[in-house]
Simulated scan of single mutants.
Amino acid sequence: MKDFMFVFRNDPAVMAGMSPGELQTSMQKWMDWIGGIAAHGKLVDRGNQLANEGNVVRPAKVVTDGPYIETKESIGGFIMVRAESLDEATEMAKGCPILFAGGNVEVRPIIRM
């Protein structure tokens, strides 16, 4: 078994435009999806949602505000899963609720050193 990280990217404006009921429905879909992965013993880390604000450190220790929400896509969060292969992990990602809200899931193998 190998570990994989699912990185969730979306347009922050989509969530900002949701009603409280839509947000609650969306959260339940996320809980069900992650719960299903956990029920199969494939969840390594529930991860976290990421805040929109932050800083970016560049070469020469230059610090700027960012990431910039003005972009159409930002990283919204992550989880870690366990699968036999990249193909299996990718199949798990296909059920992610973010796909139904115009977002995407980046599936990346984790290299343990």
Rank of each mutant, 00 (worst) to 15 (best):
K42I: 01
I79P: 04
D87Y: 12
I111C: 11
E70M: 09
V105N: 05
P20I: 02
Y68H: 08
W30D: 06
V62C: 04
A89E: 01
V14E: 07
G47E: 10
F100G: 03
Q28N: 07
L99Y: 05
M18W: 10
K61R: 15
M92K: 04
D87K: 14
E91F: 05
N55S: 15
G76H: 03
S85R: 05
I79E: 00
E22P: 10
V105R: 01
I34R: 08
E70K: 14
S19I: 03
N48I: 13
N104Y: 11
A51I: 09
M80R: 12
I37L: 07
G103L: 02
W33M: 02
M113D: 12
D87N: 15
R46Y: 13
S74I: 11
R58D: 09
T25V: 15
A13K: 11
G17H: 04
H40F: 08
R112P: 00
R9N: 10
V63N: 05
A60K: 11
E73V: 07
M15W: 11
G36L: 06
R108Q: 07
L50T: 08
N48A: 14
D65T: 15
A16R: 06
Q49L: 07
E22Q: 14
R82A: 02
I34V: 14
E106N: 14
A16W: 03
R9G: 01
H40R: 15
D65S: 12
V14I: 14
K29P: 00
D87Q: 15
R9Q: 03
N52H: 12
G21Q: 11
I75M: 10
L99D: 04
A101Q: 12
L99N: 09
W30S: 07
K42S: 13
W33Y: 09
G77A: 03
G41T: 13
E73W: 03
A51K: 08
D11Y: 00
V107E: 07
G17C: 02
E91M: 08
I79K: 00
S74G: 14
F78H: 08
L50E: 09
A60F: 11
G36S: 09
N48Y: 09
V14G: 01
S74L: 15
W33N: 01
A89W: 01
R82V: 04
I37K: 02
H40M: 15
A13R: 13
A51F: 07
S74F: 03
V56W: 02
N52Q: 10
E91P: 00
F6T: 00
M5D: 00
V57C: 08
T25W: 05
T64C: 08
I75N: 04
V7H: 10
A16M: 09
P59N: 10
P67Y: 03
G41Y: 10
R58H: 12
G95R: 01
G76Q: 08
F78D: 04
S19D: 01
T71F: 06
I110T: 05
E70L: 14
A60M: 08
G17T: 00
R58Q: 13
H40S: 14
G35A: 14
F78L: 11
K42N: 13
K61Y: 12
M18E: 11
P97A: 00
G77P: 02
S19G: 07
P109E: 15
V81Q: 01
I98Q: 08
M92R: 06
I110R: 09
F100S: 13
E22D: 15
G17P: 06
R58N: 11
S19A: 07
A13P: 03
P20N: 02
M31K: 04
